[in-house]
Design a protein around this nucleic acid. Structure first.
Length: 806
RNA sequence: GCCGAAGUGGCGGAACUGGUAGACGCCCGGGACUUAAAAUCCCGUGUUCAGCAAUGGACGUGCGGGUUCGAUUCCCGCCUUCGGCACCA
């Protein structure tokens, strides 16, 4: 019998499919385990070996958990709305639905030929009306809760093409020589900021990589500060600024507001009006990129107006500059150039005064000092003094004083912005809102609201989506009067925000998910995907989940209990795989050449799952050889009958086996698949060396290997007369007594250098170890003529002599 | 600039809690089997010095210090690479 991977893999994939081997159990009588992949966008270029890494990892876990007696939910689906299919439609007129269907079919086939044990009866597709009905349903809940609102938001507008660009398209178009400007458009926005605090707090209970949690915390960017009012005597109003350094208020020497600040033009005095207007105009033309560009020289214009510092009554000039963000805090800042590098730069450029109010190790005229570990100076008035106080105390005293005078208020701010939720595109979930002639809005009455067929997929020249051209879809009348439907669609993030819930109850037409099923299956026990989703997808999902929690739709505060990011697989040239570099290793190509089991094992053997690592096609040869050796545990080289023996394994082999069971079990639990595979290789090599082909040993190897290489192990399992599927076999359990050593090798060191070894029982006491160590031949000469200063013995490990010449 | 991760043979990587550095695999070299090849199996493989050889010595985990009987592992100071953020006041 030869190992014909191609025939074997086809055979078992067909059988798993025919026998529904991996259908999720519906009885809630066993412990459950929900293991989920980040579902893919089915692109036209197909899957490459990098995509398969995470899927292989979850599949190993799914199969392992099943053999440990768990009821496992391991589903797959498609995040199929999105730009590429739409761009293809614009170019060729092919409906995105067809493109999507084709790509999904190709993806599904590749995944099946990898032997992944998905429950395909639960497949979901975000573009399926039965699915996006519930995406729209969630949107309407957000709307009812006041968490979805409309607002004028700047979009990336391409003048020549008359289209709104997604952020990721901007660079590309600029490179092609198009101009992109910011243009305000009325859009849907989700109030994710209302959940900022909970999104930070609940991170603590999650079993996620620390760096991902940190990235989310930074993204949300919570800060504690004070909003301070500066009187504008000539305008009978005041300017509100936000600062996290109220302790530096006495050092404020000017104020700056953003060009979009409502007072920007009003504060301009007659002589400055032209300059101010032209500055505001120029700012408008700059793109986001140009404004936030890094080493950009500061620019600004003086309004001519002055404000009063509430701490010391000084009058401070009010400037306008685009380095102040409109959308953060109040869009206005107090500048303390001595202790803030941006203010310092600005002050130097426009020759504004710099005043030290935190004791600095150097002259603040020469360089800024931003340290918080120093004490305040020059900071007192008739009512309050913070001189000599450290940051925290100074902050509190100033904040309290300002609050008592009604000049300020403590305020928590977040960097996180509300989520712009609409796209001017065709291929997305329609936003189910009607705009009535009287200016009111109402939800669509029937969901799903499906996409109409269109002739052309181009956006309209006003920046609206192609839906705005479809009169019969667009307009209608009901008891509230005539209406026009919303023409914006949802962003690609929408469908992926809640798909993990739909897998639990994929064809329920009456509910998003049936509550008892939801309670049984949630949370997701293990979620594996790329680090590129560390912030946005995972934050948006968590936000929606919390909303659903508040609605009582879900029973858990968080969706994903344990998260794991697989590292990217690079091309053989150590570069990121990309079509343009020509270093992509297509999945189908290696599958044809080496088979699914070899690809699965090799991807896991490459290195730690979380690590970025290059692909090397040579390396897969070693895995093929290993599979050959596994095959020959059962079949002679050219034999026709199994070489299996019915005798018991010898004691040494038995011990070796139990050690391997322990190691493979522990490593699989911890997703350390590379070392688990290494251990199995060692075990198989030793069985061959010992000529041990006992049924017990071989079947143990097959069971340990089966989550990793399911096809070959199924075949050999069957060859050995077992049935019906190795996936039903229970995971072997190790005997701690057998898995531990009786006799170990003790290292003997002299002054920390290895000079010899000897064998000793594990329990051998220290004194005896030292005596034995002194007798080791290779050690003796290093002790001769030396005085032993210290003798260290670590039972089970080593003996070390610290010596000095006599 | 700030936050985070990581630097180990020719290559991917291994090493529990401070205890024999380089498991496992690739590549490479030598050999067995074969008419030959494929497949398979065996041996060698960090650097360097001494020796005909068996063998033995020194060095070696990014760099420089430190703690320790003993450091890839802990501490201090650097360098480099990768990922994220990028005027958030």
């Amino acid at each position: 019998m030869r190992y014909d991977f191609s025939a074997i893999e086809k055979k078992w994939q067909a059988r798993w499919c025919a026998e529904n081997t991996f259908a999720t159990g519906t009885a809630q009588d066993k412990p459950k385990y929900y293991v989920l992949d980040m579902f893919p966008y089915p692109s036209g270029s197909g899957l490459h070996v990098g995509h398969l890494e995470g899927y292989t990892a979850t599949d190993i876990v799914a199969r392992y958990k099943r053999s440990r007696g768990c009821n496992v939910l391991h589903p797959m689906g498609w995040d199929a709305f999105g730009l590429p299919a739409e761009q293809f439609a614009i170019r060729t007129g092919t409906h995105p639905r067809f493109t999507t269907e084709n790509n999904v079919a190709s993806f599904r086939e590749t995944l099946k030929s990898m032997g992944f044990s998905y429950d395909w009866s639960r497949e979901v597709n975000t573009t399926d009306p039965g699915y996006f009905k519930w995406t729209q349903w969630i949107f309407l809940k957000l709307y009812e809760m006041g968490l979805a609102y409309m607002s004028e938001i700047d979009v990336n507008w391409c003048e020549e093409l008359k289209v709104v660009l997604a952020n990721e398209e901007v660079d590309e178009k600029l490179a092609d020589g198009y101009t992109v400007v910011r243009k305000p458009l009325r859009q849907w926005v989700l109030r994710i900021t209302a959940y900022a605090e909970r999104l930070i707090e609940d991170l603590d209970g999650l079993d996620w990589p620390e760096n991902v949690k940190q990235m989310q915390r930074n993204w949300i960017g919570r800060s504690e500060g004070v909003e301070i009012d500066f009187e504008l005597p000539c305008h009978r109003t005041h300017l509100k600024v936000y600062t996290t350094r109220p302790d530096t208020l006495f050092g404020a020497t000017y104020l700056v507001i953003s060009p979009e600040h409502p007072l920007a033009e009003k504060l301009a005095i007659a002589q400055q009006l032209t300059a101010v207007r032209s500055y505001i105009e120029k700012a408008k033309l700059k793109t986001e990129l140009e404004r936030t560009g890094l080493q950009k020289e500061k620019s600004g214009v003086f309004t001519g107006s002055y404000a009063v510092n509430p701490a010391n009554g000084e009058t401070l000039p009010v400037w306008i500059s685009d380095f102040v963000l409109t959308s953060y805090g109040t869009g206005a800042i107090m500048s303390v150039p001595a202790h803030d590098s941006r203010d310092w730069e600005f002050a130097k450029k426009f020759d504004l005064p710099i005043r030290e109010v935190v004791r600095s190790p150097h002259d603040v005229q020469e360089a800024v000092f931003e340290g918080k570990e120093s004490v305040s100076v020059n900071s007192s008035n008739d009512e309050v003094s913070i001189d000599g106080l450290e940051f925290k105390t100074a902050f509190d005293r100033m904040a309290s004083w300002l609050e008592s005078k009604g000049k300020g208020k403590r305020k928590v701010n977040y960097r996180l912005r509300d989520w712009v939720f609409s796209r001017q595109r065709y291929w997305g979930e329609p936003i189910p809102i009607r705009h009535y002639d009287d200016g009111t809005m109402r939800p669509e009455t029937a969901l799903p609201l499906t996409l109409p067929e269109v002739e052309a997929y181009h956006p309209t020249s006003t920046g609206e989506s192609p839906l705005a051209n479809i009169g019969e879809w667009l307009f209608g009348t009901d008891e509230h009067g005539g209406f026009r439907r919303e023409t914006n669609t949802m962003p690609q993030w929408a469908g992926s925000c809640w798909y993990y819930l739909r897998f639990i109850d994929p064809s329920n037409d009456g509910q998003l998910v049936e509550p008892s099923k939801e309670r049984y299956w949630m949370n997701v026990d293990l979620y594996i995907g790329g680090a590129e989703h560390a912030v946005l997808h995972l934050l948006y999902s968590r936000f929606w989940h919390k909303v659903l929690y508040d609605l009582g739709v879900v029973s858990t505060k968080e969706p994903f209990q344990r998260l794991f990011n697989q590292g990217m697989i690079l091309g053989e040239d150590n570069e990121k795989m990309s079509k343009s570099r020509g270093n992509v290793i297509p999945a189908d190509q290696v599958l044809d050449a080496y088979g699914a089991d070899a690809v699965r094992l090799y991807e896991m053997f490459l290195g730690p799952l979380e690590q970025v690592k290059p692909w090397n096609t040579n390396g897969i040869e070693g895995i093929s050889r290993f599979l050959g050796k596994v095959w020959r545990l059962v079949w002679e080289e050219n034999g026709t009958s199994p070489r299996i023996t019915s005798d018991r394994s010898g004691h040494a082999i038995l011990k070796r086996m139990h050690k391997a069971i322990r190691k493979v079990t522990e490593d699989t639990e911890q997703l350390k698949f590379n070392t688990a595979i290494s251990e199995m290789m060692v075990l198989v090599n030793e069985l061959h060396k010992a000529g041990c082909y006992s049924r017990e040993a071989v079947e143990t190897v097959l069971t340990l290997l089966s989550p990793y290489a399911p096809h070959i192990t199924e075949e050999l399992w069957e060859n050995l007369g077992n049935g019906p599927s190795i996936s039903g076999a229970l995971w072997p359990v190790f005997d701690p007594a057998l898995a531990s050593d009786d006799v170990v090798t003790i290292a003997v060191q002299v002054n920390g250098k290895l000079r010899g070894t000897f064998e000793a029982p594990v329990q051998c006491p220290k004194e005896q170890l030292i005596e034995e160590a002194k007798k080791v031949e290779s050690v003796v000469k290093f002790l001769e003529g030396q005085a032993i200063v210290k003798e260290i013995a670590v039972p089970g490990k080593l003996v070390n002599f610290a010596v000095k010449p006599l």
